[in-house]
Amino acid sequence: MAKTINVGVIGLGAIGERLIGAFSQYPETSVVAVCDTMTERVEAMTSKADGVKGYTDYNEMINETNLDLVYIAVPPKFHHKIALDVIEKGIHILCEKPLANSIEEAKEMMDKANEKGITQAMNFPLNYSPGANTFKKLIDEGYVGELRRVELTMHFPQWPRSWQQNDWVASREQGGFVLEVGVHFIQQTQRIFGSVKPIQSLLELPSDQARSEVGIFANLELEGGIPFIINGLSDIAGDERISFTAYGTEGTLSLINWSAVEGGKLGESIKPIEMVDQSDSLISNIVKALNGEKAELYDFAAGYEAQVVLEKLRNR
């Protein structure tokens, strides 16, 4: 019987807590230590998680606790330093997206992790979702025929959303919907359609220079010169809507609001499409990888490749 995988979590915001809950659903993984610079968050987590050690200094956590895996769930500008310290200890890593706060930081993280030979994974959950995998399966089977265009639309009544009210998600340095949401679909585009080349990006920026973009219109190209268009707006009327659509010579296919798939052939109406079965997950694949089994993980290279495109979209 394989030993239990001891997990340490750095960052106890909404996403960190969500993954702690996910780890608890797997008997093979055990969250044994948590860390956050906010003492009240640490105390709240350790009070409801029996036997979990709490820290406000991540170096103390990785030095004092026997860890197999560290999940980094802090704001992007802190990923680089924390990841390098974890890598130096030889501990495997699951990292939030975007990988880092610059292309240079992302590359160093990727290179150091590869040199050390540690298992590395990005939290790109769409790769394990029924909706995204139904979309990919139908594209691979030729549902749309010859691809003509891909479009990503991101519309937000407000940014940050009501459940994301913190300084860094709203900041031009680390946040904005291009980074926070766009990264998932850039990675999906690279996964499904191959390399992506940014051509032009027009950002709508507010007068407050610390605040993130409120609009983007970008032209990119896929392999073979196929257009990929990104249209994003925040601070607008209506409901949040995210659509990722492929147009082809035989049909149209969309992934809507992360999970729903709809499509139609030429001459037909657009209708909902039944999902493929999906029993796999990020954590189950991490367990496989750490037990030496074949696993589907999207590593720091996937994070780096997405970040190269993202930083060009942000004109950085």
Rank of each mutant, 00 (worst) to 15 (best):
M275A: 14
P157R: 03
I91Y: 05
T46P: 03
A295V: 13
G267F: 01
D57S: 09
A33I: 06
F185A: 07
P76H: 03
L313G: 05
G303A: 10
A22W: 07
G248P: 00
Q165V: 04
Y26R: 15
R18L: 15
P206D: 10
G117W: 13
R241Y: 06
S171W: 02
V52C: 02
E250R: 13
E274Q: 13
R316V: 12
Y304P: 01
N101E: 14
K136D: 11
S279A: 11
N219D: 15
N127A: 13
G292P: 00
L310Q: 13
W168H: 10
I286H: 01
P76Q: 09
F244L: 03
L99F: 04
K288W: 07
G117T: 06
S259D: 14
F244W: 08
N166P: 07
V144N: 04
E151D: 07
R41Y: 12
R211F: 10
F228T: 02
D235Q: 13
V181D: 08
F300H: 11
Q165S: 06
S47N: 13
M122D: 08
I118E: 05
E296D: 14
I62R: 02
N123K: 09
L84Q: 01
I270L: 12
I5P: 05
C95E: 05
L205V: 10
D277Q: 14
I15G: 04
G11V: 11
V308P: 00
A73I: 02
L138H: 05
I256Y: 00
L222H: 11
E293R: 12
S171P: 10
G142E: 06
W159S: 07
S129G: 09
M109F: 09
T153K: 11
G194A: 11
S212K: 08
Q158P: 01
Y128T: 05
G264W: 06
P160Y: 01
R148W: 10
I93A: 02
G51L: 04
G21H: 01
G232F: 04
T119L: 12
V276S: 04
A260G: 00
P27C: 03
R161F: 02
G224Y: 12
I15V: 15
L152S: 09
V308Q: 14
K116S: 04
I62M: 04
P157G: 01
I192C: 08
I139T: 03
S171F: 06
A14K: 13
